[in-house]
């Protein structure tokens, strides 16, 4: 991915995404980051740095940024108790009802494509209040009318325990809000270089479009410096290839 250019700096798309997600984590007590999540991981670490370390961050797979001591189950137990305020989920497909598919395309028993699997989504999507969906390939292939396999549903019947659910969805083209009452996505902002029309052309589900849709804000110079310095070093522990590609950084010895 090559990032759009701003007039002041060479801010990359990933940096806009990291900055935007970090803005949704302000004031939270505890943010957890799961598998295959370098952009959310960097965003959580950025939010922590800007909070003066008031926000706790637990990154799966990290030894430096993970304070769990009771094994693999503790993240889920912690979330089930309401001790985790935000988490991140993606999907090979995500549909207009915020259902996510991390499993397969076509018949699950003989699929056309098979992905790693649902990970913790079949639980965390239900119990974490602020689940931020991210999909860094925004096309009609990925953002679909109806997913082929529901790893976790966007919404549930009223009698199902569901303190958690979708809070927003960020893609490589735009940011969507979630209207929980109407169970629909709402276009919130478009990233530099995109338009309301280009989003419509590349989205496979219906969503709401307000009269005014701003361009997603760019990070300021201090934030960019923080990302490229401290945050790049922190995320490199878990995602060395990502840190190298986006920030040009090798993992510290």
């Amino acid at each position: 991915m090559s990032g759009p250019q701003s007039s002041e700096t060479d801010v990359q798309l990933e940096e806009i995404l990291i900055h935007t997600i970090a803005g949704m984590l302000e004031g939270l007590r505890h943010v957890a980051v799961g598998a295959s999540s370098p952009v959310p991981g960097a965003a959580a670490l950025l939010a922590r740095a800007r909070s003066g370390e008031a926000t706790r961050v637990s990154v799966l797979g990290s030894e430096d940024h993970n304070f769990f001591t009771d094994g693999g189950k503790e993240l889920f137990d912690c979330a089930g108790q309401g001790r985790i305020d935000a988490f991140f989920l993606s999907g090979a497909q995500i549909d207009g009802k915020a259902n996510i598919n991390l499993v397969s395309i076509g018949d699950p028993d003989l699929p056309k494509a098979r992905f790693p699997g649902s990970f913790g989504s079949g639980y965390l999507y239900y119990v974490v209040p602020r689940v931020i969906l991210f999909r860094l390939e925004h096309t009609k292939r990925t953002l679909v009318e109806q997913v082929d396999f529901i790893s976790a549903p966007g919404f549930c019947e009223p009698n199902v325990y569901r303190p958690g659910g979708p809070f927003a969805m960020i893609t490589d083209r735009c940011l969507f809000d979630v209207d929980k009452a109407r169970r629909r996505f709402v276009l919130k902002s478009v990233h530099p270089g995109e338009t309301v029309e280009s989003i419509a052309e590349n989205t496979g589900f219906d969503y709401d479009v307000p009269d005014a849709v701003p361009t997603t804000a760019l990070p300021d110079a201090d934030t960019v410096a923080l990302m490229r310095g401290r945050i790049a070093g922190e995320i490199a522990e878990i995602y060395p290839a990502f840190a190298r590609r986006v920030f040009g950084l090798e993992k510290a010895a």
Partner: peptide, 13 residues
């Protein structure tokens, strides 16, 4: 027993 899963195809299968 656990929360979650209800409404998913993980559970359905």
């Amino acid at each position: 027993v656990m929360r979650g899963l209800i409404g998913s195809d993980i559970l359905a299968r």
